[in-house]
Structure formats: C-alpha cells, structure tokens
Design a protein around this nucleic acid. Structure first.
Lengths: 192, 192
DNA sequence: ACCTGAACACCGTTCAAGT
DNA sequence: ACCTGAACACCGTTCAAGT
C-alpha cells in the first residue's frame, strides 16, 4: 500500500469538472461548496483559492463552460457559405448545452462573459465575412435565441428538472429532427 | 392609533405576489423563506401551511405563474386564422415572461405543470381547430422554443442577472421589433 | 502558494405548542 | 385552522493558522 499518493493539486479545471458532474447528477440546488470540496477530496475553503469570488465565480465559470463554443471555418477548400456556418454554430452550441443540462438555467439567463463573449464575437465575424455583412449581429441573436429556446424545450420534455422524474426521457432523436427542421426555416428566413 | 389592524390572512396568492416582488427586485438567490415571511409580516414557518411542499412548491408556483397564459380566440366576428392565433399566443407568452425576469430561469427549465400545462393544451387545440390539424403540437413546440429563446436573449442583454448591473437597459423597443420580425418568419415557415 | 479548522451569520424544515 | 418559537442540520464566507 502506498502510504500517500501525492494529491493531485487543485485547479480551476478540476473544480469546474467536478461541479458539472454534481450539477448534472444531482441538480444545481445540491451543488454546494462543501459537497464540491468532498468530491475533490479537499476542504470546501480550498476552492476559494482558485475561484476568489467563491460561488458567484463558480456559477459564472459553469455558464461560460457550456456557452463558449468554437467552429473552424475550414481553412482549406472552398469557403463555406454563411448558411453552412450558421448551421455549424447552431449545432455546436446545441450539443454543448445538452451535454450539461444541470447548468442550463445559468447559461439561459446569465449575460455572456469572457470566453462565451469571444465565441459570440467570432461567430458574428465569420457570418459577416461569409456574406451577411451588417446583418450578422441580428442573425447571431436570432440563432442564439433559437438554440437556447430549442434546448430549453428539449430539456423540459426530457423531464430533467422534474422532482418526480419518472423517466429521464432519451427522445433526443425526435428532438434533433425538429431542431434541424426549424433551423432550416430560420436560416431561410434570415436570407429574406 | 388603532391598536391592531386585523392582519390580512395569508393566502397562496399573497405569498406568490410577495415572492415575485422579491425575486424581481433582488434576484432568485435572495428569495428566502425567512425574507418571504418578513415581507408578509409573518414568521417564515407560516408559509408552509399554504404551500405544504415548502420552497419546492413555491418555485413550482412561480414558474406556473409566468407560464400560464390565456388567449381569447374571439367568439364574435370572423374566426381568426391560425397565423393570428399563433401571433397572439406568442405575444401574450412573451409579455408574461418579461414581466417577471426574476423567475425566468425557473420557467425556462421546469417542465410545465398545472395551469401552465392547461395553457399549452388550449393553445394546441385552438391551432388545431384553426386549420393546423395534426401539425399543431409541433407548431406549439416551435412557438414555445422561439418565445423562450427570444426572452432569454432579451433578458440577458438587459443585464438583468448581472451582478455589476451598470444599467438595467430598457431597450425593449428594439427587442420587440426583432421579436415580431422573427415571429413573422417562423409563422411563415410553419405554413410550408 | 496552497490548504485547513474554527467560527459567524444565515438558510430550509421539523415539531410541539399556542390561539 | 392558522401561526409561533425553539431546535436541527446544513449552507457561504472570513480569518488566522498551518505547511
């Protein structure tokens, strides 16, 4: 028996991973500094050394984590149309959000900051250069609204936040179909 | 000086009103049973008599309050088109949600129950009878997603949930323009 | 620099008791 | 039937102290 495995040092990244795991598994209301400390084999107060603003900072970081997304516009080959780019951003955002339903309510309500804000800026710039021009900011807002709304409805229907969770439904198949369908309609509408 | 004004008896309705006031004014995280009691001139524990499941029931009731909406299909005169009905439902839902940004995160994530569920049923039935037929349920989901997403983005941009709330922006004018525009596009898409 | 332990003010909820 | 008061387990955060 090794007497002491040298404890993996705490880090912002490990903290956020553990927090996501708790929130997804037990709900945001049960994500507590003390429980977070337990999961990391550490006293709750150790977290404050890596997130100085405490729980407020943690919540911000979680929202950022599921909202910051990156899409590669594809350097080689033909430049993609703005329609293709819009589709790629919408899909990437949706999957990122669906991966962590436990913190969805944060992402839906908190104003984007840091990496999330940069992500939106990149998206706007790509769409602008791909042909949308000055219509890009409004298009990004419309796409964001569509993605956020779709994911909200999907998660509601999955019964995720239900205290009497009979079945946490896995009907993501139909959800994706409807998502793609609505996305087509929205992109078509953005063209007019 | 009247020695005792006979205290207005507590009621579910008064509790919910006070809770909305606190949530909108100070944020959901500061809505606490004790503060709620204070606002109602009562001990916190009195609330449990009217909401037996305590804070859980309170949260459910708040979500229900901003999600349950009623639209009169207009008995006299010509029957409205499903397009007009869809517009009316979307507008009514949006205003109900924007009225209480403090509990928006609940409405976005909690599966609809009680009055909220009935509201969705009515909307589906009206759209079905107005000509959408079996396409009504999917249309209602699309409309709900659009409304929820739009309001989420609007509230984010208003800086409502921002701890460093420089200005709680009142740019609802532009928000409404964009909302109506996207709504037109969506309804057009539902027709195809 | 990084983590601990004790402490403080506050929270949700119970339960017996008052009227 | 409706509300209170005391109590319990738990929470976020501080601060001085350890290494």
């Amino acid at each position: 028996m090794p007497a002491k495995r040298p404890p993996v040092p705490l880090s912002r990244e490990r903290i956020i991973d553990a927090a996501l795991h708790i929130a997804d598994g037990q709900g945001l209301r049960r994500l507590t500094m003390r429980r977070l400390g337990d999961a990391l084999q550490v006293e709750a107060m150790a977290v404050y050394h890596h997130l100085p603003r405490g729980k407020e900072a943690l919540m911000d970081a979680l929202a950022e984590h599921v909202t910051a997304v990156r899409v590669d516009p594809g350097g080689s080959g033909a430049a993609p149309s703005w329609q293709d780019l819009a589709r790629a951003w919408a899909r990437a955002s949706r999957t990122a959000l669906l991966e962590h339903p436990g913190v969805l309510s944060l992402a839906l309500v908190k104003p984007p900051k840091g990496a999330a804000l940069i992500s939106i800026g990149e998206q706007t710039e790509q769409l602008r250069e791909a042909g949308l021009g000055d219509a890009a900011p409004a298009a990004v807002r419309a796409l964001r609204a569509y993605v956020l709304g779709s994911v909200a409805v999907e998660v509601q229907q999955s019964g995720w936040a239900d205290p009497d969770a009979d079945v946490v439904n896995a009907r993501t198949a139909e959800g994706e179909r409807e998502f793609e369908q609505g996305l087509d309609a929205l992109i078509a509408g953005l063209g007019g």
